[in-house]
């Protein structure tokens, strides 16, 4: 059964339609890229899947259920804006997550944070890139079934990007799926199974990366530039 399924999903902000009739399925064990320019509806879609927003029409189902407290227990979400209290020490936040989420894998988190050697630092003193790494580690250290990552590689340097991609590959689990939104495709393309292109709230493409490369003879990045040329 699909871990994530959207049927006729529509979201309006007042008169503006942010999402229009979205139908999609994400099977277990897939890493899916949600790609689209700014304002195409990526974050809105992820927020509906987490239950932070309610759809105007249609529905998103996580493991067969509409978003509720049970689905929240199996969904690990990385929002695009930082939400951690920045007066806390990294070690405090890790403890906080361990208390809050029953599926939090402490060993895994400490293991991933070790290379950064920042345990005793206060979050406020960390650089933007390091903060983003910490957030991603916390999110990926949960043994969730669905990881929803909103712009995980947004503002970080290439080395940090490698660290983040590495973290995603390292935590790969055939039972779980990852959906990540981004507009920086080049760096992430080889980590993805499938890509979904969103354009003005509609899906214009939903297919496996290698299938696209095979049929178009170009990278997803090149194809993206073609579809979204302005």
């Amino acid at each position: 059964m699909a871990i994530l399924e959207c049927k006729g999903l529509t979201k309006k902000y007042g008169k503006k339609e942010a999402l229009r009739q979205i139908d999609l399925q994400v099977e277990p064990g897939r890493i899916v890229g949600l790609l689209g320019p700014n304002g195409s509806g990526k974050s809105t879609l992820l927020k509906i899947c987490t239950g932070l927003l309610t759809p105007t029409k249609g529905a998103a189902h996580i493991d067969g259920r509409k978003p509720d407290s049970k689905t929240k227990a199996i969904v690990s979400y990385l929002p695009e804006v930082p939400y951690l209290n920045d007066w806390m020490k990294v070690s405090d936040i890790v403890a906080f997550f361990r208390d809050f989420y029953s599926d939090f894998n402490l060993t895994k988190a400490l293991d991933m944070l070790r290379n950064l050697s920042i345990e005793n630092q206060v979050l406020k003193t960390l650089s933007k890139g390091t903060k983003e790494k910490v957030q991603l580690v916390l999110v990926m250290a949960r043994e969730a079934k669905l990881y929803l990552l909103d712009e995980p590689i947004g503002g970080v340097d290439p080395a940090a990007r490698d660290y983040i991609l590495n973290t995603i590959i390292r935590n790969y689990n055939p039972e779980a799926s990852v959906v990540l939104s981004t507009h920086l495709i080049t760096d992430i393309e080889q980590v993805l199974d499938d890509v979904i292109f969103l354009k003005e709230g509609e899906i214009v493409l939903d297919c496996p990366v290698d299938e696209l490369r095979e049929s178009k003879g170009m990278s997803v990045d090149a194809y993206f530039r073609e579809v979204f040329k302005c």
Partner: peptide, 8 residues
């Protein structure tokens, strides 16, 4: 991990 590609 070595190749930095998707396990699938």
């Amino acid at each position: 991990l070595e190749a930095a590609v998707n396990p699938n």
